[in-house]
């Protein structure tokens, strides 16, 4: 079952992807197929099963509140596409 155009566009906007009309059409088709495929899980009775959220049998993995040296700013900003005054620069954020 195809996923509707409206839904594909909504998901794309949540994921910050921009799709052409053709891509919307194609992805609607493909995602629909995958959706049908993953919905085979509906055959499984899970009524009395807890979901595995964390695969390991571990808990409370904590560290002490101890300072570690930070990185040089140069290294932190090395890969930034645009920088200014020791900061990363982006177009004006509108609130």
């Amino acid at each position: 079952m195809k996923i509707t155009e409206q839904e594909v566009r909504h998901i794309a906007s949540l994921a910050r992807l921009r799709l052409s009309d053709d891509e919307v059409e194609k992805l609607g088709e493909e995602l629909g197929q995958i959706k049908e495929f993953v919905e085979t899980l509906n055959e499984v009775d899970v009524s009395s099963v807890d979901a595995t959220a964390y695969i390991l049998d571990k808990q409370n993995v904590l560290r002490e509140d101890e300072l570690k040296p930070s990185f040089d700013r140069e290294l932190i900003l090395k890969n930034a596409p645009a920088k200014e005054a020791g900061c990363i620069s982006v177009p004006k954020v509108v609130e």
Binding site: I3, E7, A15, L17, V38, L41, V44, V46, V49, D50
Partner: peptide, 30 residues
Amino acid sequence: RRIMLGTYVLSSGYYDAYYKRAGQVRSLIV
């Protein structure tokens, strides 16, 4: 494609049907 699918299964209204159920089936597989 995978980002789209992943975003879809986590999006509002679908979490229980997909992600949560997958976690439950995962427990059965474990």
